[in-house]
């Protein structure tokens, strides 16, 4: 019995030795036929197993089968090796450091990106997005906002006017997104909360921080008991999410005809966190961002609401300033430059 076992192992060893020496696939085929072919000694051995006693079969059978499997595997391995060796891989080598195929690369304008970011933050807080025309009537741009004709507050911003034809209503390019306020109020009943992003125009000379065409955002929230504390909350929540850092809000008294009380609002400096002593905030710890306030009751009345029925908060700021702060952009005029060297950075 042991003799038989030894014989099988000898066959295996012989086959392995030949496989190791084989040079071509033909050599391998011949060896395979010789050792595993129908007429091979091994096959004969396998066939002879059935003539053995069941005890003997149990003793030798598994070994013979295992050796057969091993030989099959060794032939496959040897073939694979030969196939690999047959290809000149070096000839096919790529320089992976060479550039990829140049495909045109698209970019959303940085202001579009910022606007979307703002819209998404506000909509996640349940604000609707409202819009209005860029060419606006005097009513919505001024009168409805408590700034009638010959009101000195009209001087606070220089407005572009459209040449009017006879008998036509005076039209201007809206100088603030607040123009959307009364338009929206006329169509809706509080409580509501909206933002109105959009393009506004001011007839003023341009420099690194001033543009005659820019984007603004207006946030308006009206209900029965909206208060100044809520204004602080909404602003703080928004700016903290936008700048991805905890931001504090500071309100300073100011005046805009459409709010009472009115504020300038500052946020704690993003570089030094409100601690004095950094150049970004000119060493006062705060960054001036925009105007805000509680909606003037006259605005509600102009929109057809009952006086003193509602309270509302409103605030607005320039998108460019926000983008400039967040992305370190030094000159506001770049936004409208159309220069791809700027646009493709974002």
């Amino acid at each position: 019995m042991n003799e038989l076992k030894k014989h099988v192992v000898d066959i295996q060893n012989e086959a392995f030795a030949l496989v190791a020496k084989a040079k071509t696939e033909t050599d391998l085929n011949e060896i395979e036929i010789r050792f595993l072919g129908r007429k091979s000694e091994f096959n004969a051995l396998l066939k002879g197993l059935k003539d053995l006693s069941s005890e003997e079969r149990q003793a030798v059978g598994p070994l013979v089968n295992a050796i057969k499997q091993e030989m099959i595997r060794s032939f496959a391995e040897a073939r694979q090796k030969m196939k690999l060796a047959s290809v000149d891989w070096e000839k096919d080598r790529l320089d992976v450091t060479a550039p990829g195929v140049k495909l045109p690369e698209g970019h959303l304008h940085i202001l579009t990106q910022v606007q979307r970011e703002i819209e998404d933050i506000f909509t996640s807080m349940g604000f609707d997005i409202a819009s209005g025309p860029e060419i606006e009537t005097e009513f919505y741009n001024f009168d409805a906002l408590n700034t009638p004709a010959h009101h000195p507050a009209r001087d606070m911003q220089d407005t572009f006017y459209i040449k009017s034809k006879d008998g036509q209503e005076n039209l201007s390019l809206r100088s603030q997104t607040s123009a959307v306020q009364v338009r929206y109020m006329e169509q809706h009943t509080p409580p509501f909360r909206i933002i109105a992003p959009g393009r506004v125009f001011r007839n003023e000379a341009t420099d690194t921080t001033h543009e005659h065409t820019f984007f603004q955002f207006e946030a308006l929230m009206v209900g029965e008991d909206i208060n100044v504390g809520n204004l602080k909350y909404v602003a703080q929540e928004f700016f903290s999410r936008f700048f991805k850092t905890e931001v504090k809000i500071r309100l300073r008294p100011s005046y805009f005809p459409f709010v009472e009380p009115g504020f300038e609002f500052d946020i704690s400096c993003l570089s030094c966190g409100g601690e004095k002593g950094c150049s970004a905030c000119r060493h006062n710890g705060w960054l001036e961002l925009g105007g805000a306030g509680m909606v003037n009751q006259n605005v509600f009345v102009n929109a057809g609401y009952e006086r003193n029925r509602y309270q509302g908060l409103a605030w607005g700021f320039g998108l460019e300033r926000l983008a400039m702060m967040k992305y370190d952009i030094p000159d506001i005029r770049l936004f409208h430059s159309g220069d791809t060297r700027f646009l493709s950075q974002f």
């Binding site: 349940g126 409580p191 909360r193 929230m221 209900g223 008991d225 909206i226 208060n227 100044v228 504390g229 809520n230 602080k232 909350y233 909404v234 703080q236 809000i249 500071r250 309100l251 300073r252 008294p253 504020f263």
Partner: peptide
């Protein structure tokens, strides 16, 4: 106005 607390609106 610095004494005004930050208040989440009830809406």
């Amino acid at each position: 106005y610095d004494v005004v607390p930050v208040i989440a609106p009830k809406i």
